[in-house]
Simulated scan of single mutants.
Amino acid sequence: MTLASRAFAQLATWPDLRRTVPSCGLGRAVSSIHGEIAHFHSSRDVDLRLTDRAIRRFAKDMRHTGAVRIVPGSQWVTLRLDAASDVDLLLTLASVALQAQQTWPDPVGRLLVGCNDQRGAGFVKADLSGV
């Protein structure tokens, strides 16, 4: 079982989340009654939807980890699951995302931009073979 599969299975057991088809059409997702929380696009990459407020609050800490990619202007952060600690980080941030959606829901009529996978903003592996 991959780390992403394990994380997805755990999130799917949370009482406020349900399995769903991601709006981008790629992979698997979990949603709350307030909207999508996470898209699992591969065995390693997960897009997690946070509120603007949550991203601003945790941006400095998230940027210091190599497991998280923040895309300016996106409500989604991309997590690379390479270790069990990355799954722990995902579960913690998913809890933050769920609480933020419940406490500070998106304004009515606000256009939600697609996840980072649709923006080509996942992790890019550098080709260092010629170096």
Results as ranks from 00 to 15, higher is better:
66 G>Q: 07
79 L>D: 01
52 D>P: 12
69 R>I: 07
45 D>G: 09
53 R>C: 10
88 D>W: 01
58 F>Y: 15
90 L>T: 04
69 R>H: 11
94 A>M: 03
62 M>L: 15
55 I>N: 00
80 R>Y: 11
53 R>D: 14
86 D>E: 07
51 T>K: 03
85 S>Y: 07
65 T>Y: 04
57 R>A: 15
65 T>F: 00
84 A>L: 13
52 D>R: 14
79 L>H: 01
61 D>E: 11
78 T>W: 14
73 G>M: 09
81 L>E: 07
84 A>H: 13
58 F>H: 15
63 R>W: 04
83 A>C: 10
95 S>P: 04
83 A>L: 10
58 F>S: 06
92 T>N: 10
73 G>P: 11
79 L>A: 03
49 R>A: 08
74 S>A: 12
92 T>C: 01
46 V>L: 02
56 R>N: 15
71 V>P: 00
93 L>N: 05
93 L>Q: 08
55 I>M: 10
60 K>Y: 08
88 D>Q: 09
79 L>S: 00
52 D>M: 10
80 R>T: 09
58 F>V: 04
72 P>C: 05
55 I>P: 13
65 T>V: 01
83 A>I: 02
44 R>Y: 14
82 D>P: 02
65 T>W: 00
76 W>A: 10
67 A>H: 09
81 L>C: 09
58 F>T: 06
75 Q>L: 12
86 D>L: 09
71 V>T: 15
66 G>C: 05
69 R>Y: 03
87 V>E: 04
70 I>F: 06
61 D>F: 01
94 A>R: 02
78 T>H: 07
75 Q>F: 07
92 T>V: 02
48 L>S: 06
81 L>M: 05
82 D>M: 12
48 L>F: 09
93 L>T: 00
80 R>L: 14
81 L>G: 08
89 L>H: 08
50 L>N: 02
72 P>K: 13
94 A>Q: 01
85 S>I: 08
56 R>D: 14
56 R>M: 13
62 M>E: 01
81 L>A: 09
72 P>Q: 09
72 P>E: 07
77 V>Q: 04
74 S>R: 12
61 D>C: 00
51 T>F: 07
73 G>C: 10
73 G>R: 03
65 T>P: 03
90 L>Q: 04
76 W>M: 05
67 A>E: 04
70 I>L: 15
75 Q>T: 12
88 D>E: 14
76 W>V: 06
